[in-house]
Design a protein around this nucleic acid. Sequence first.
DNA 1: AGTCGGTCTGGGAGCGCTTCCAGAAACTCG
DNA 2: CGAGTTTCTGGAAGCGCTCCCAGACCGACT
Lengths: 338, 338
Amino acid sequence: MAEDGREVPTLDEVARVAGVSRSTASRVINGRTYVSAKAREAVAQAVTSLGYSPNMLARSLAMKRTNSIALVVSEHGDRVLGDPFFARVLRGVHAGLAGSGLQLVLLMAQDEQDHGSMANYLTSGHVDGALVVSLHGEDPLPAQLVASGLPVVLCGRPLAKVAVPYVDADNFNGAGQAAQYLIDQGRRHVGTIAGPRDMAVGIDRLSGWRRTLSMAGRPTDAIAHADFSLEGGMAAMEQLLTAHPGLDAVFVASDLMAIGALHVLRGRGIRVPEDIAVVGFDDSGLAATSVPPLTTVRQPIEELGRTMTWRLLAQFEGDVELPPSVLLPTELICRETA
Amino acid sequence: MAEDGREVPTLDEVARVAGVSRSTASRVINGRTYVSAKAREAVAQAVTSLGYSPNMLARSLAMKRTNSIALVVSEHGDRVLGDPFFARVLRGVHAGLAGSGLQLVLLMAQDEQDHGSMANYLTSGHVDGALVVSLHGEDPLPAQLVASGLPVVLCGRPLAKVAVPYVDADNFNGAGQAAQYLIDQGRRHVGTIAGPRDMAVGIDRLSGWRRTLSMAGRPTDAIAHADFSLEGGMAAMEQLLTAHPGLDAVFVASDLMAIGALHVLRGRGIRVPEDIAVVGFDDSGLAATSVPPLTTVRQPIEELGRTMTWRLLAQFEGDVELPPSVLLPTELICRETA
DNA sequence: AGTCGGTCTGGGAGCGCTTCCAGAAACTCG
DNA sequence: CGAGTTTCTGGAAGCGCTCCCAGACCGACT
C-alpha cells in the first residue's frame, strides 16, 4: 500500500475540534436526535474543515452491516462476461441499487475450484447479502450461503431442491404463450426444440409448450433437445424435419437455436413462416436482426436484475411474507417468422 | 438484515477451543512463525471443527488494508454496461486479479451528480486502490482520488494535466501503423475520419496519422471529425469525399465509424479497396463481420484491463520506478478493405 | 421546595482482529 | 552451571466506529 499523503481524520479528531465528545459527534454525523443546535453546528464545521468522512470499515464492524452486497457469478468469469444476458442483469441490478446506498461487489469464480473461497468470502461478513447468477443447476453454493444465514436471491430457478428465493422469467407461461399463438394461427403440428434436460430454463419452457399443446388436444411428440447453441439448434431442426415431416410450426427454446433452425429451413428451401412457423425465446439482440426477423418470447432481463435486488433489499428490511420466488411475465414479440 | 442461523465463530472462540491465547491463534491462522507445532495443530483443529473463517472487516480495520479494489466507471452505469469495450476491460481486470486474493468492487455513477459520493466512498478506506474507466477526459475524479492518497490507475490517457498513472493502447503509433500501411500500398492521398477533438483517443489517433503522413511527405489536409458513431462516420465520409475528390485511402479512428464510411462508399458506387482503401481502429467484433471485412488496428482491450491491474498491484507492493503510464502495442489486422 | 418528564452530553464497553511487548520456557555455549 | 540466545506465549493496546447508560441540566408541574 502507498502511504497516504495526509492523515485521514477520525471521528475523535472531529469531536476534539468541535469541542464535544465522540458520542455527540457521532450523533450529529448520523443525523440522530437529541443534539443541541450548537453542538450540531460545531460538528458540522469541524467535519467540513477537516474533510472528514467516516471510515466505513469501522462503522461496518460496529454495526455488523457492510452496506454492500455481492453479485456472484459462480461460473468461470471469462465465460460469462462476454454474455450479453449477464450484462443486462448487471444493469438491472445496478439500477435496482440506485439510491439504496449499497455497493456492489462483483464475485466471479477464477479457477474451477474457487467455490470454497467464494463461499468463505461471502460468509465471513464482507457483504450483507448475495445475488447469485448460477448458470448450471446443480451448484451447491446457494444452499451453502443460505445455510450460513446470508440473505441470498438467485437468478433463475435452481434445480436442486433447496429453499432459496429466486427470480426468474416465467418460462413456463412464456412457452405457453408461444404455443398458443401458433395454435391460434391454425398450425396443426407444433414441434419444439427444447433446451437441455438438466437446466431449469430448458425444462420449464418444454413443459409450458407441452401443457398448452395438450390442453388444445394437439400432439406433443415432436421434441428435439439441444444445448442452446446455434449448431445444436441446427441439428435439432434437421432431426425434427426427418422425424416429423408434417410439422408446420416449431417453438424453439432460445433465439440462438432458432436462428440455427432458420438456417436449416432456408437451406432446405422451406418457407418461413408459410410452410413452417418459428417462434424463439429471449428476444435477444439477434432476434430483431435475423432474416427474417424472429417472432419470439421476450423475457425482461434487466427487470430480472432489478427484481432480484428488490427482493434482497426487502429481505434486509425484514419484510415478512415475501414471496419465496417471483416469476416475471414474458411477452410475445411478433415479427415475421410466425 | 436477517438474523443468521448459527453464530459466526470468532477468533476468541477458536483460541478458547484450542486452549491457547488469541494471539497464538492469530499467528497460526496467518501462518506466522514462532508457533509450536502443538499449538499450531490445536488451532487448526479448532478452526475446522468450528468452521471458523476470519472476519475480513475486523482484519481490514486492524491492518488498514481491505484486500479489495474498486473498478470505477465514472460514466452513468447504464450507458457503459452495454458497451462491449467495458466488458472486455472488466474481463482483463478480472483475469489480472486472479490469485491476488483481492476482491473487485464495482462502482458506477448512478445519477449525474454521483461523483461526490463515489469519491467519498473511495477515499473512506473501503478499498485499497481504484481502477478508473473514465470515458470523457475532463473528469475531476482521478485527480481527487490521487490527491487523497489512494493508488489509482486510469484506463486511457487523461486529458487533464494531472499526474495519474494510466494504461492505454498506443493510439499514436497504431494510427501511424495504419497510415504507413496505406502509404506502402502506394496510396497517394490518405484522409482520416478522426474522433472528437476533446478526447484523448481522438487526438492521439489523429496525430499518429498526421505524423506518419508528413514524415512521408504526404498531404495531411483531408481531415473530418466525427463523434465515434455510425452516423458520424457516414457524415464525415461524405464530407471528405466532396472536399477531397482525389482521396484514395482513409484511416478511420474507429471501426463503427469505418462501417459508416463503408456504407457511404458503397452507396456511391466507390469500390473498396480498389478506389478507396479503408482502415479502421479497434478491431471490435464489427470489423470481422462487416462487408467487406474491415482492415483495422487492433487494440488489446483485455490486456488493457490486465495491465491496469498489474500496475495497481505493483504499486501496492511498493515497487518503485514504476512507469507512470504504459502504452500497449497495437496490431494491424489486414482484411479486405485495404 | 421537591419531583418529574424531557433534552442533551460524555464515559465506556464492545465489534473481531492484529501486533507490540514483556516474560516464560527451552535451548546453546563457554 | 549461569549467561546469553532463541523460541514460544499471553496480556493488552490499539484500529475507528456505534450505542448503551448514567448523569447533568432544563423548564414545568404538584
